[in-house]
Amino acid sequence: MDLNALVFSFFNLQIALEYLPDILKGMVVTVELGLVVAITGLVVGMALAVLRALQLKPLNFFIICFADIMRALPPLVVIMMLFFAFPYIQISMSAFTATWLALSLVLAAFVEEICWAGIVSVPKGQSEAARSTGLSWLQSMLYVVLPQAVRLTVAPLTNRVIAITKSTALGSVVGLSEVLNNSQSAMSNSGNATPLMLGAIGCLLIFIPVVLLGRWTETRFRWKQ
Protein backbone atom coordinates (compact mmCIF):
# COMPACT_ATOMS: atom_id res chain seq x y z
CA MET A 1 0.00 0.00 0.00
CA ASP A 2 1.41 3.30 -1.07
CA LEU A 3 1.47 5.92 1.68
CA ASN A 4 1.23 8.76 -0.78
CA ALA A 5 -1.85 7.25 -2.34
CA LEU A 6 -3.36 6.95 1.13
CA VAL A 7 -2.80 10.60 1.92
CA PHE A 8 -3.97 11.73 -1.50
CA SER A 9 -7.18 9.73 -1.38
CA PHE A 10 -8.15 10.13 2.24
CA PHE A 11 -6.44 13.22 3.60
CA ASN A 12 -6.49 15.52 0.64
CA LEU A 13 -6.40 19.02 2.08
CA GLN A 14 -7.65 20.80 -1.00
CA ILE A 15 -10.71 18.58 -1.40
CA ALA A 16 -11.32 18.66 2.32
CA LEU A 17 -11.55 22.42 2.30
CA GLU A 18 -13.76 22.41 -0.74
CA TYR A 19 -16.36 20.08 0.71
CA LEU A 20 -16.10 20.98 4.38
CA PRO A 21 -19.20 23.21 4.33
CA ASP A 22 -21.35 20.37 3.02
CA ILE A 23 -20.05 17.99 5.64
CA LEU A 24 -20.70 20.52 8.38
CA LYS A 25 -24.23 21.11 7.12
CA GLY A 26 -24.77 17.37 7.25
CA MET A 27 -23.45 17.23 10.81
CA VAL A 28 -25.94 19.88 11.86
CA VAL A 29 -28.79 17.82 10.46
CA THR A 30 -27.48 14.72 12.20
CA VAL A 31 -27.32 16.49 15.55
CA GLU A 32 -30.76 18.08 15.13
CA LEU A 33 -32.35 14.81 14.16
CA GLY A 34 -30.61 12.97 16.97
CA LEU A 35 -31.84 15.41 19.60
CA VAL A 36 -35.43 15.40 18.35
CA VAL A 37 -35.51 11.61 18.17
CA ALA A 38 -34.01 11.24 21.65
CA ILE A 39 -36.47 13.63 23.25
CA THR A 40 -39.55 12.26 21.48
CA GLY A 41 -38.58 8.66 22.12
CA LEU A 42 -37.82 9.20 25.81
CA VAL A 43 -40.98 11.17 26.54
CA VAL A 44 -43.33 8.83 24.69
CA GLY A 45 -41.63 5.72 26.05
CA MET A 46 -41.77 6.88 29.67
CA ALA A 47 -45.40 7.92 29.35
CA LEU A 48 -46.24 4.47 27.99
CA ALA A 49 -44.47 2.79 30.91
CA VAL A 50 -46.39 4.81 33.50
CA LEU A 51 -49.64 4.07 31.63
CA ARG A 52 -48.75 0.41 31.80
CA ALA A 53 -48.46 0.70 35.58
CA LEU A 54 -52.17 1.50 35.67
CA GLN A 55 -52.76 -2.16 34.81
CA LEU A 56 -55.68 -1.60 32.41
CA LYS A 57 -55.89 -4.77 30.32
CA PRO A 58 -56.99 -3.33 26.92
CA LEU A 59 -54.46 -0.51 27.12
CA ASN A 60 -51.70 -2.90 28.13
CA PHE A 61 -52.41 -5.17 25.19
CA PHE A 62 -51.92 -2.27 22.80
CA ILE A 63 -48.75 -1.09 24.57
CA ILE A 64 -47.18 -4.53 24.57
CA CYS A 65 -47.98 -5.11 20.89
CA PHE A 66 -46.56 -1.75 19.98
CA ALA A 67 -43.39 -2.39 21.96
CA ASP A 68 -42.89 -5.86 20.51
CA ILE A 69 -43.43 -4.82 16.90
CA MET A 70 -41.20 -1.76 17.03
CA ARG A 71 -38.43 -3.73 18.70
CA ALA A 72 -38.65 -6.58 16.19
CA LEU A 73 -38.71 -4.53 13.00
CA PRO A 74 -35.34 -3.31 11.72
CA PRO A 75 -35.39 0.51 11.84
CA LEU A 76 -34.44 0.77 8.18
CA VAL A 77 -37.56 -1.19 7.24
CA VAL A 78 -39.72 1.22 9.25
CA ILE A 79 -38.09 4.23 7.59
CA MET A 80 -38.69 2.74 4.17
CA MET A 81 -42.29 1.90 4.96
CA LEU A 82 -42.97 5.46 6.04
CA PHE A 83 -41.11 7.08 3.16
CA PHE A 84 -41.85 4.75 0.24
CA ALA A 85 -45.01 2.91 1.16
CA PHE A 86 -47.17 5.45 2.95
CA PRO A 87 -47.37 7.85 -0.01
CA TYR A 88 -49.44 5.14 -1.72
CA ILE A 89 -52.15 5.71 0.89
CA GLN A 90 -51.89 9.47 0.56
CA ILE A 91 -49.58 10.00 3.54
CA SER A 92 -46.43 11.67 2.26
CA MET A 93 -43.62 12.94 4.40
CA SER A 94 -40.15 14.35 4.00
CA ALA A 95 -37.06 12.24 4.55
CA PHE A 96 -36.47 14.08 7.81
CA THR A 97 -39.98 13.41 9.08
CA ALA A 98 -39.92 9.78 8.03
CA THR A 99 -36.59 9.17 9.72
CA TRP A 100 -37.63 11.11 12.83
CA LEU A 101 -40.95 9.30 13.14
CA ALA A 102 -39.49 5.86 12.54
CA LEU A 103 -36.59 6.23 14.96
CA SER A 104 -38.75 7.89 17.62
CA LEU A 105 -41.26 5.06 17.55
CA VAL A 106 -38.48 2.48 17.78
CA LEU A 107 -36.80 4.32 20.65
CA ALA A 108 -40.12 4.78 22.46
CA ALA A 109 -40.68 1.02 22.34
CA PHE A 110 -37.28 0.27 23.86
CA VAL A 111 -37.64 3.03 26.45
CA GLU A 112 -41.05 1.71 27.50
CA GLU A 113 -39.70 -1.81 28.00
CA ILE A 114 -36.66 -0.61 29.93
CA CYS A 115 -38.69 1.69 32.19
CA TRP A 116 -41.31 -0.99 32.75
CA ALA A 117 -38.65 -3.55 33.71
CA GLY A 118 -37.28 -0.94 36.11
CA ILE A 119 -40.65 -0.32 37.73
CA VAL A 120 -41.35 -4.03 38.06
CA SER A 121 -38.01 -4.76 39.65
CA VAL A 122 -38.41 -2.34 42.53
CA PRO A 123 -39.18 -4.84 45.32
CA LYS A 124 -42.85 -5.09 46.19
CA GLY A 125 -41.98 -4.41 49.82
CA GLN A 126 -41.15 -0.81 48.96
CA SER A 127 -44.64 0.05 47.73
CA GLU A 128 -46.14 -2.01 50.56
CA ALA A 129 -44.20 -0.02 53.13
CA ALA A 130 -45.23 3.24 51.48
CA ARG A 131 -48.91 2.25 51.24
CA SER A 132 -48.96 1.02 54.83
CA THR A 133 -47.97 4.48 56.05
CA GLY A 134 -51.00 5.91 54.25
CA LEU A 135 -49.48 7.13 50.97
CA SER A 136 -51.81 6.82 47.95
CA TRP A 137 -50.96 4.77 44.84
CA LEU A 138 -49.81 7.88 43.01
CA GLN A 139 -47.72 9.16 45.93
CA SER A 140 -46.16 5.75 46.39
CA MET A 141 -45.27 5.71 42.65
CA LEU A 142 -43.88 9.25 42.59
CA TYR A 143 -41.85 9.28 45.79
CA VAL A 144 -40.81 5.69 46.33
CA VAL A 145 -41.10 3.45 43.24
CA LEU A 146 -40.14 5.66 40.29
CA PRO A 147 -37.05 7.23 41.92
CA GLN A 148 -35.68 3.75 42.57
CA ALA A 149 -36.69 2.51 39.13
CA VAL A 150 -34.82 5.40 37.52
CA ARG A 151 -31.53 4.33 39.11
CA LEU A 152 -31.91 0.89 37.59
CA THR A 153 -32.79 2.17 34.12
CA VAL A 154 -30.19 4.86 33.52
CA ALA A 155 -27.54 2.53 32.10
CA PRO A 156 -29.73 0.62 29.62
CA LEU A 157 -31.50 3.85 28.65
CA THR A 158 -28.33 5.73 27.79
CA ASN A 159 -27.07 2.78 25.77
CA ARG A 160 -30.26 2.54 23.80
CA VAL A 161 -30.54 6.29 23.18
CA ILE A 162 -26.98 6.29 21.85
CA ALA A 163 -27.67 3.34 19.56
CA ILE A 164 -30.82 4.88 18.11
CA THR A 165 -29.40 8.36 17.59
CA LYS A 166 -26.54 6.79 15.65
CA SER A 167 -29.16 5.28 13.37
CA THR A 168 -29.87 8.74 12.02
CA ALA A 169 -27.30 7.73 9.40
CA LEU A 170 -30.00 5.44 7.99
CA GLY A 171 -31.76 8.57 6.78
CA SER A 172 -29.16 8.75 4.04
CA VAL A 173 -30.81 5.75 2.40
CA VAL A 174 -33.95 7.81 1.78
CA GLY A 175 -31.99 10.86 0.71
CA LEU A 176 -31.87 12.82 3.95
CA SER A 177 -29.02 15.35 3.80
CA GLU A 178 -27.32 14.22 6.96
CA VAL A 179 -23.62 13.72 7.29
CA LEU A 180 -23.27 10.33 5.60
CA ASN A 181 -25.34 11.29 2.59
CA ASN A 182 -23.44 14.52 2.07
CA SER A 183 -20.12 12.70 2.44
CA GLN A 184 -21.10 10.10 -0.11
CA SER A 185 -22.30 12.67 -2.64
CA ALA A 186 -19.14 14.70 -2.17
CA MET A 187 -17.11 11.55 -2.65
CA SER A 188 -18.85 10.75 -5.92
CA ASN A 189 -18.51 14.29 -7.16
CA SER A 190 -14.85 14.60 -6.34
CA GLY A 191 -13.80 11.06 -7.09
CA ASN A 192 -11.88 11.14 -3.84
CA ALA A 193 -12.42 9.47 -0.49
CA THR A 194 -11.46 12.47 1.62
CA PRO A 195 -15.05 13.67 2.09
CA LEU A 196 -15.93 10.22 3.39
CA MET A 197 -13.03 10.46 5.82
CA LEU A 198 -14.29 13.86 6.93
CA GLY A 199 -17.75 12.45 7.41
CA ALA A 200 -16.44 9.61 9.55
CA ILE A 201 -14.42 12.02 11.65
CA GLY A 202 -17.50 14.24 11.93
CA CYS A 203 -19.51 11.31 13.27
CA LEU A 204 -16.83 10.54 15.81
CA LEU A 205 -16.78 14.18 16.90
CA ILE A 206 -20.52 14.05 17.48
CA PHE A 207 -20.85 10.64 19.08
CA ILE A 208 -17.71 10.05 21.10
CA PRO A 209 -18.71 12.76 23.59
CA VAL A 210 -22.15 11.15 23.75
CA VAL A 211 -20.62 7.76 24.49
CA LEU A 212 -18.37 9.23 27.17
CA LEU A 213 -21.35 11.08 28.67
CA GLY A 214 -23.15 7.77 28.75
CA ARG A 215 -20.32 6.13 30.68
CA TRP A 216 -20.28 8.98 33.17
CA THR A 217 -24.03 8.78 33.85
CA GLU A 218 -23.74 5.03 34.32
CA THR A 219 -21.14 5.30 37.04
CA ARG A 220 -22.87 8.19 38.74
CA PHE A 221 -26.18 6.38 39.10
CA ARG A 222 -24.85 3.15 40.52
CA TRP A 223 -26.02 2.40 44.04
CA LYS A 224 -23.40 3.55 46.53
CA GLN A 225 -22.17 0.22 47.83
Binding site: K166, S167, A169, S172, V173, L180, A200, I208, V211
Partner: peptide
Protein backbone atom coordinates in the same frame (compact mmCIF):
# COMPACT_ATOMS: atom_id res chain seq x y z
CA UNK B 1 -19.39 2.24 19.75
CA UNK B 2 -19.53 5.85 18.53
CA UNK B 3 -19.24 5.23 14.81
CA UNK B 4 -22.61 4.48 13.19
CA UNK B 5 -22.50 1.01 11.59
CA UNK B 6 -23.73 2.33 8.25
CA UNK B 7 -20.97 4.93 8.13
CA UNK B 8 -18.43 2.23 8.89
Amino acid sequence: RALPPLVL
